[in-house]
Computed example of a mutant assay.
Amino acid sequence: MGGIDREKVKGSFHRQAKTYDQYARVQKRVVANLLDQVRKEVGTPGRILDVGCGTGKLLAELHRLHPEAQLFGADLALGMCITAGAHLAAGAFVTADAESLPFIDGAFNLVTSTSTYQWLPALDHAFAEARRVLAPGGIFLFALFGERTLFELKDAHYQALKREGEVEDITHRFFPPSRVEAALAGAGFDQWRVESTLEVELHADVPALLKSLKKIGAGNASPRASAGLYGRKRMLAMMDIYQEKYGTTDGIPATYEVIYGAGRCP
């Protein structure tokens, strides 16, 4: 996977905190799916932490499901924490890195996360931190976007590069399921599992897709990437290729690979 500029990620999500919920359609479906897992696998957690809590949507649903639980949210972007705090008075929110959580060992019975870990340069430290803050018998339930996410956009961009005689694609890449599995196994969980599924979102055209991505803060986080998709000429070429290769009568598809994982502490 390519490098990740963490400051770029933090700034982007901070700026888009107010528009995130309006455009995060796939992310909302992921939250709903993770909640189903919580219902099936979690008893009565006393303390819950959501890593990369965003606007607090998952924690708000967890509050409805477990109203007696103490709720904590951590997010790298201050704007997200402010928005989450305004949405959920019952929660405590901190600006923090998933790789360095400001909590004592064994503080939580349940750690959750959705649509967050793909923005990390590696998973090992973050998963080890989730394991560290879980109490014995606690469970870690998460979902992140995998390497096949937005493959149509990446392919169209790469083809536009080739038209200009360039072959190096410096867009960042997300993790494959095998890497997620390895990180979970190495974090010290007693039981763990990983599964992958695809979610497809339809947009009217490529500009509508790009606007949606911008409004949720999901830009190119490669440290070598310049603003946008490298100039108007390349942008127009990319949009033409995308429409020609993947367009349908219903619009253009944007595919997300969602990797769901779980780990239980001994």
Rank of each mutant, 00 (worst) to 15 (best):
residue 152 E to R: 00
residue 254 A to I: 01
residue 114 T to C: 15
residue 185 A to I: 07
residue 194 V to F: 10
residue 236 L to R: 12
residue 173 R to M: 04
residue 36 D to K: 15
residue 75 D to A: 10
residue 197 T to H: 02
residue 9 V to N: 02
residue 70 Q to R: 12
residue 228 G to K: 05
residue 40 K to G: 08
residue 244 E to Y: 10
residue 239 M to E: 11
residue 64 R to T: 11
residue 159 Q to W: 09
residue 167 V to R: 12
residue 207 P to A: 08
residue 98 A to G: 13
residue 186 G to Y: 10
residue 28 K to D: 14
residue 26 V to F: 01
residue 32 A to Q: 09
residue 52 G to R: 07
residue 135 A to I: 09
residue 247 G to E: 05
residue 207 P to Y: 08
residue 96 A to L: 07
residue 193 R to V: 13
residue 266 P to I: 02
residue 159 Q to C: 07
residue 119 W to P: 00
residue 232 R to K: 15
residue 94 V to A: 14
residue 139 I to G: 03
residue 245 K to Y: 06
residue 150 L to R: 00
residue 148 R to M: 00
residue 192 W to P: 06
residue 20 Y to V: 04
residue 124 D to W: 13
residue 200 V to P: 05
residue 92 A to E: 06
residue 168 E to T: 11
residue 52 G to A: 05
residue 61 E to Y: 07
residue 95 T to K: 14
residue 162 K to S: 10
residue 212 S to G: 11
residue 210 L to E: 07
residue 220 N to D: 09
residue 170 I to P: 02
residue 265 C to A: 09
residue 193 R to C: 13
residue 103 F to V: 09
residue 125 H to A: 09
residue 22 Q to W: 09
residue 26 V to H: 02
residue 242 Y to D: 14
residue 143 A to P: 04
residue 207 P to R: 08
residue 81 C to F: 11
residue 100 S to E: 09
residue 107 A to Q: 05
residue 210 L to G: 06
residue 206 V to E: 06
residue 166 E to Y: 14
residue 108 F to M: 10
residue 104 I to M: 11
residue 96 A to K: 04
residue 208 A to P: 07
residue 153 L to S: 00
residue 61 E to K: 12
residue 67 P to H: 13
residue 125 H to I: 09
residue 44 T to P: 01
residue 176 P to V: 00
residue 110 L to M: 10
residue 128 A to F: 13
residue 93 F to S: 01
residue 240 D to T: 13
residue 127 F to W: 14
residue 256 Y to A: 00
residue 82 I to G: 03
residue 87 H to R: 15
residue 126 A to K: 04
residue 157 H to E: 02
residue 44 T to H: 14
residue 154 K to M: 04
residue 78 L to R: 15
residue 133 V to N: 04
residue 259 I to L: 02
residue 105 D to F: 10
residue 196 S to D: 08
residue 195 E to W: 12
residue 259 I to D: 00
residue 193 R to S: 14
residue 113 S to C: 12
residue 192 W to D: 08
residue 58 L to V: 05
residue 190 D to K: 11
residue 30 V to N: 00
residue 248 T to Q: 12
residue 141 L to Q: 08
residue 96 A to M: 02
residue 20 Y to P: 02
residue 238 M to W: 05
residue 103 F to L: 03
residue 24 A to E: 02
residue 6 R to I: 07
residue 5 D to Q: 12
residue 95 T to G: 08
residue 92 A to K: 12
residue 259 I to H: 01
residue 117 Y to M: 07
residue 248 T to V: 09
residue 64 R to V: 03
residue 102 P to Q: 13
residue 238 M to F: 06
residue 8 K to E: 03
residue 237 A to L: 15
residue 266 P to D: 14
residue 100 S to M: 06
residue 127 F to H: 07
residue 30 V to M: 07
residue 66 H to T: 06
residue 149 T to D: 01
residue 78 L to D: 05
residue 42 V to T: 06
residue 14 H to D: 15
residue 193 R to G: 12
residue 247 G to V: 10
residue 71 L to M: 10
residue 201 E to F: 03
residue 123 L to E: 04
residue 130 A to P: 03
residue 11 G to W: 03
residue 60 A to W: 15
residue 160 A to F: 03
residue 52 G to I: 06
residue 231 G to E: 08
residue 57 K to F: 04
residue 55 T to E: 08
residue 57 K to Y: 06
residue 183 A to H: 05
residue 167 V to N: 08
residue 1 M to S: 13
residue 166 E to P: 03
residue 184 L to T: 05
residue 198 L to E: 14
residue 216 I to D: 02
residue 72 F to G: 02
residue 25 R to Q: 11
